[in-house]
Every structure is written in C-alpha cells, then in structure tokens.
Amino acid sequence: MNLPDRPTRTSGRPPTLREIAERAGVHVSTASRVLRQPEPADGWSEAALRVREVAVELGYQPNLWAASLRTRKTTTLGVVMPRLTDGVVATMFQGIEETATQAGYSVLLSSPPDDLDAQRRAIEFLVSRQVDGLLLSSLHSPGREFVDSLSVGSLPMLQLNRHADVGLPFVSGDDHRGGYLAGRHLLDRGFTEIAAIAGPDHASTSRDRLAGFRDALAENGIELGPDRVVRSDFDVSGGVAAATVLLESDSRPEAIFTVSDTIAIGVLGVARDLGLRIPDDLALVGYNDIPVVAQLPVPLTTVRSPARLIGATGVRHLLSIIAGNDVESVKLPVELVERASTLR
C-alpha cells in the first residue's frame, strides 16, 4: 500500500476502518477498497485521497494476516531443501529467494535430514503454516504413494533438482547429459580404465549422471563392471571411503568420475595420501562446479550445473501453477568445464 509520506500516530490503539471512513466521510467499504488497492491508472479521486490522508494521520497499518484470510493467500512459498550447507544447494536457494522476493513472495524454509520420514514432517509443517505452494528439493524416489499419503490437499507442489516418479512436475539440470559429457571427455583424453563414484541410489541425480556416463562409455565398447562403480554419500567423507576402495584395489583405475565435486575432493585427499599425482597417475572429473574446485592445487575438471537458475526457474514454474496454469517439467542445460585434473 503506497500511502503519502505523512507523520503517523505513535501512541494509542490502531485506528479501525470504520473510524477512518467516518472521519473521511465515506462508507466503510469505500475506505477498505481504497486502502487495499493500488493507485488507479487515472489517479485517485478526491474522496480516495481524503481516505488515504486520514489513514496516514491516524497511523493506520494494513492487517496483512486478515487480508490473507480473505484472499486465501499468504504470499509465502514453502521450501524443503536438505543439506543447506552444501554449496550447490545454498546457491540454488539463493535463486529461489531472489526470484520469490522479486515476485512479492517470502520463503519459509525447512532443511530436514535427507530421509523420507524427515521430509514428510517438513512438508506437513510447511503445509500447517498455510504456504501457497511447495518446492520439494532433493526428494527421495519412493513412488507416487509418498505424495499421495501427504496431508496437503490440492496445494501446488513442484520438485526441484531431483525428480521422483510422484506425479509432480520438476525443474532440474540435465544430469544424464552431464554424465554423458564427463564420459565422453575421458574417452577423448584416451582413458579406458575408468571408474565411477555414483552417490546414493535413491537420488535421481546419482542415477541420471551415472546412466549418462555409462552410455558414453558403452558407445566406445567399455562397460562399467560392478567393481568399477562405488556408491557413496554426497560429501567429502563419502568420497574418501569410496576412493579408498577403488585406489587400493589390485586393478586401480586411471580415471574416476564422481557425481559431485565434494566427493571428488575426498578422492583428491586419498590420492595425495597414496602418493598419486593428478592427472599423471589418476584423472578426475567432478560434477556441479562449486567455486572452490577451480582454486584447488590441481583445478578440477567438472560438469557445471546451473544451480541458481534451477532455483529461480523452480519459483517461476511454481507461481505459474499457483496461478492455475499447467507447467511442463524442464531439464536445464549443463556444460563440461575442462581443467588440469584430466589434461595430462
């Protein structure tokens, strides 16, 4: 509400709409309409100006909560986003918050542990806060029954970053394409003894990146056997554990693809401890292009995922759903960034 800049009352109870209407000499409905609507294109009428001036003089403040009850809107979006300490997730949230703010919405965030029960509680908490829609980031893949079992009514929802078969649209990076680019790059550099650290199987990001990587290798007649794929968490300690398995084996690979940069950092630590040189003894490709990997002693080749754009696009799609529109799922483009970790 754009009221004129005038001194406001600093004491006493807030004025009511009836008091403003009586002093301005208009009906209460007229005062209510003037104070909750933007200025018309042809400007305010004399009566409307009088209402707004009286409102400022009496120190009137609009009751946004009451307004939300009338409109059934709170202009608040709920976001479920595990692992907010992860650089990629934090960047994605920046895109969410910036775009929501520009659209006049606030964001209510819940960052539960990365498991189904915790995500269920987070979703139901945000629903209880009467958000207008939900962005579900990094959702597990339990099937449609998970979403069907939630007490959310017809609340608009959209998946972000990961996608599960739950009947909801999603916005993510093109993870299959990213994995393919990583595999193609290692093949073009002449590597054939290749392994992958794939991340947890419940995450579509892990599955899609690994599938794309496998497809690139298969085009060159290379198959990743069970001993060449190790699962891990999306963190440095997961990378350390997985790299230890691969690099201390009798058939040590000459190149490793990891489905996140944080995993790759763990691999670098194990390689250092084993006296392996990057990339002479071991080539390494990560995923996401978090800022630190370009500044490592050996800068990391990685697949750049548009984290901020994923967040921003997710908000725009969710607001479109809230407005009553149908939206299609979208996979945003990714790109390979070549650095020293594969360029021997």
Rank of each mutant, 00 (worst) to 15 (best):
L3M: 08
R9K: 15
G12I: 02
P14K: 09
T16D: 03
A21N: 04
R23S: 02
A24T: 06
G25T: 02
G25N: 06
H27M: 01
S32P: 08
L35Y: 12
Q37R: 14
A41C: 02
G43T: 08
L49K: 11
E53V: 02
V54G: 06
A55H: 12
L58A: 13
Y60P: 02
W65N: 13
S68F: 02
S68I: 05
K73L: 04
L77Q: 07
V79Y: 09
P82F: 13
R83F: 10
T85K: 08
V89I: 15
A90C: 04
F93N: 08
G95C: 05
Q102T: 07
Y105T: 04
L109I: 10
P112K: 12
D115T: 03
R120M: 08
R120S: 13
R121K: 14
E124W: 03
F125L: 13
Q130N: 14
D132T: 10
D132I: 10
L134N: 04
L134K: 05
L134A: 02
L136E: 08
S138K: 09
S141E: 12
P142I: 12
R144Y: 00
E145F: 01
S149P: 01
G153D: 04
L155T: 10
L155H: 06
P156H: 12
M157V: 02
D165T: 01
V166I: 15
L168T: 01
P169M: 15
D174A: 10
D174K: 00
H176K: 00
R177V: 13
G179N: 03
G179C: 05
Y180S: 01
G183A: 08
R189N: 04
F191D: 04
A196N: 10
A196G: 09
A198D: 14
S206L: 01
D208S: 00
L210S: 07
D215C: 02
A216T: 03
A218W: 11
N220M: 14
G221F: 14
I222M: 14
P226Y: 14
V229K: 04
S232A: 15
F234D: 12
F234K: 00
S237I: 03
G239Y: 10
A242T: 09
A243T: 02
S249Q: 05
S251F: 09
T258H: 01
T258F: 05
V259F: 05
S260H: 00
D261K: 00
D261Y: 07
A264N: 04
I265E: 00
L268G: 09
A271Q: 08
R272T: 15
D273R: 13
I278F: 03
D281G: 12
L284W: 09
L284T: 05
N288P: 01
D289P: 00
P291N: 08
V293Q: 05
Q295I: 06
Q295R: 11
P297D: 15
V298Y: 11
L300W: 13
T302F: 14
R304K: 08
R304S: 15
S305D: 14
S305M: 12
A307I: 05
R308C: 03
R308Y: 12
L309N: 07
L309I: 06
I310F: 09
G311A: 10
R316C: 01
R316S: 13
H317N: 09
H317F: 01
L318M: 05
L319G: 04
S320H: 03
S320A: 13
S320Q: 11
I321R: 13
N325T: 00
D326P: 00
V327H: 11
V327F: 05
S329A: 11
K331N: 14
E335L: 07
E338I: 11
T342M: 03
